[in-house]
Design a protein around this nucleic acid. Sequence first.
DNA 1: CTCCCGATAGGCT
DNA 2: GCCTATCGGGAGC
Length: 211
Amino acid sequence: MKTNTYQHFFTGRPTPEIAQDLLGRTLTYQGPNGKVGGLIVETEAYLGEDDSASHAYGGRRTHYTESLYGNPGDVYIYQIRSHYCFDVVVQKAGEPQGILIRAIEPTINVQQMIKNRGVQGVNISNGPGKLMQALGIQSRQMDGQSMSDALLSIDITSKTKPQNIATSLRIGINPAGANYQAPLRFYVAQNPYVSKMLKRDADEENHGWEM
DNA sequence: CTCCCGATAGGCT
DNA sequence: GCCTATCGGGAGC
């Protein structure tokens, strides 16, 4: 049962562990121009009410953040400036933890994603707003839906194993107010589609995946 | 390549 | 008005 599999995957272990386990799994979107998607190469964990960087900090629960409080495997889509970003909701309902998908390596219908973005190369999807534009998602329409029946989903039945997983502080959060200085950003070391990637660190040979 | 700044949209207090 | 889990362009190294 797909629903139960989702529940099992997205609950019952620490959010940072789930965030790492998402690396190398395939994110797909069944869009109006066909299926598009790629391998997840970068994630960030947001730990809910006690995490000052979380939208649910201090129990903040509004119409806008409501879907963070939903079931494990639900979609949380929000907007920052003119960009849309995507979280997977994790942990049990009512516990507002989430994992931000920050970058993917395009693998499915790459030409369509190039078209959606208007650029080629790593800039197709090396950032949370960019990957959403690459997929062709430019609204909050799917916010609150379960991935088990949404057009947007993650294949949790298989993954391409990263050779090495690197960690860092999260990007773009206010360091002064952050309760969590912990390294809650995870990425596939040497994968060129990771955001803020230095060119000299990118491995053009195997993109950081196990062979 | 790295740093810095302005643009831009929507929801909150 | 204020804030933000961003992006892309431009200046300077």
